[in-house]
Design a protein around this nucleic acid. Structure first.
Lengths: 121, 121
DNA sequence: CCCATAGTTCGGAACTTCGGAACTAATGGA
DNA sequence: TCCATTAGTTCCGAAGTTCCGAACTATGGG
């Protein structure tokens, strides 16, 4: 199997980070990996809120986060272990990730709104 | 002609802002409006770097920025005057815009790379 | 060797973006 | 008034992207 590609920190582009985190599911996955320090297995994040994410979509979300330079993934046997690259990204783009993560965190009403909408469908 | 729609600040969503600014052309347009305080006429931003943007694409870029809550546009006769909503957005999502704009500003090598000629700035 | 588990790849349907051409709206001049 | 000009919007087809089920691959255990 193809080894996992990670850009060098100097090749990380702001637009890739914004694109990756412009998707609320991916932002939630990234926030979770950050809070946990490390997530063992992609499938440890099999749902975001009350919404289940299909395996193939999840795989793609991790790929987008990885190629944007936000996470580092290593195969350990049958599973993949994911770490955030916060420290490196923070050094390159100070304040960027904090601003984004805080924005999502403070947007509480909308989370509630989204959860209610999803629940009523 | 249909009046221009602007979301109330409390309806502004982080993902819309990230999506709007994940496009380097739009980020450059927004940065220019911010620096200038106000841009008179969309067509005052007819090119980004060495790349000319077609009228219809420009019109769409302004619409995306407007609907994300980043700018406020008013018709003045035949032209549209655009202001950034920095203060409002900053109050709602502190540090978000500064982080993004600084990230693009510090990513100078890549602008040069993308522009290829980059004789002026 | 077979099975289960964890992830990736494939491929088609649905959606989004891009940009040229045609359009509308306001203004200024004859 | 009528016409030209300027500024921006809308329409629509082509090209590109995203989503997700199904088929696939890789690893480890029994």
């Amino acid at each position: 199997m193809r080894p996992l590609f990670h850009p060098a920190i100097e090749d990380v582009r702001p637009e890739a980070i914004l694109h990756a985190l412009a998707d609320p599911s991916r932002a939630a996955i990234f926030a979770k990996i950050m809070r946990a320090g490390c997530v063992e297995a992609c499938s440890a994040v099999s749902a975001v809120g009350d919404r289940v994410i299909p395996k193939s979509s999840l795989s793609n979300h991790f790929k987008v986060l990885r190629e944007a330079g936000l996470i580092r993934s290593e195969r350990h046997g049958v599973e993949v272990r994911n770490h955030s690259r916060w420290t490196e990204v923070e050094a390159r783009f100070p304040g960027l990730l904090a601003g984004i993560i805080n924005a999502y965190a403070s947007d509480i009403d909308s989370d509630v709104r989204a959860a209610k909408t999803a629940a009523s469908q």
